[in-house]
Design a protein around this nucleic acid. Structure first.
Lengths: 147, 147
DNA sequence: TATTGTTATACTCTATAACTATA
DNA sequence: TATAGTTATAGAGTATAACAATA
């Protein structure tokens, strides 16, 4: 038995709870994702933002915040950090909005990130056959929109 | 369209990612659970600890930490808070370990918490038929142990 | 009036290092 | 030498309130 496993005599009264297993599974995947992204120098949230800008060039940071459920106030340091590293640049839309675009370096890094994420995803998807994986994704989308 | 929905023109490049949907779904369920537990005065992590002690009276806080993946250092204020509210009490096992038990008030509150959690769970489980719910739980357990 | 970007701030959650007492 | 409990602390992540400029 590995060193940090719980003692066998302690059974888990939360084992059948969807919310609990969701949280534990999410935590495992997030940790693995952070590890997979390590060599890109990106945190998961930063990689996500790059992928959103890649797929919707010209979007604003408020758009991204709404899509990823990140509050406007918390988008500020994230976007500033990516801009400081010259991964993205901003172009004024009107007096208050700024359109966001990937720089060449940002495009290259987004590409690396997408590869790392795909490998990470595949490692977990391979636990299931395609039907189960697809049902799982559907179920998660339903939970997400049920709240 | 609700006020905080993302703009329709912005499609989500993360929509097919298991890790992303897992995180979003987990966040929705955690928020709903916190809300369901509000009248008990317990946070989700505190309710979880009470249920573990209820199901394994005499366990130590280190046992609980291993079971719930909470670091020993972070267990200290959690257990202290429950003890201060007289929901649990400690009995020395040996010079370094303390066995944990629910007080009568703790038993009553654990009961309330279990009811609130069950109602909360049922609200989400009712999104799926039993077969899907069971497959979902199995998949989440597999992800959890794959890390 | 509502929205964008911003600042400041606070609270929770999580992580590490170090210490003590004990096994 | 390893473990239980503890302290202190640091870093994420997330939340609210308020403000200026603009629509």
């Amino acid at each position: 038995m590995a060193k940090n496993d719980p003692p066998a005599e302690l059974q888990d009264p939360l084992d059948d709870l969807l919310g609990y297993q969701l949280r534990r599974a999410s935590s495992v995947m997030m940790a693995d994702l952070a590890n997979s992204l390590r060599e890109t120098g990106l945190r998961p949230v930063e990689a996500s933002i790059l992928l959103v800008i890649e797929s919707s060039p010209g979007c604003t940071q408020s758009d991204i915040g709404r899509l990823l459920a990140i509050k406007r106030a918390n988008m500020v340091p994230l976007i500033a950090g990516l801009a400081r590293r010259d991964l993205i640049y901003r172009a004024p839309v009107d007096g208050r909005s700024q359109a966001l675009f990937l720089s060449p370096a940002g495009e290259a890094l987004a590409c690396d990130a997408r590869r790392a994420i795909d490998t990470h995803e595949q490692g977990f998807r391979s636990l299931f056959d395609e039907t189960i994986a697809s049902q799982l994704l559907d179920a998660l989308r339903q939970i997400r929109t049920h709240g």
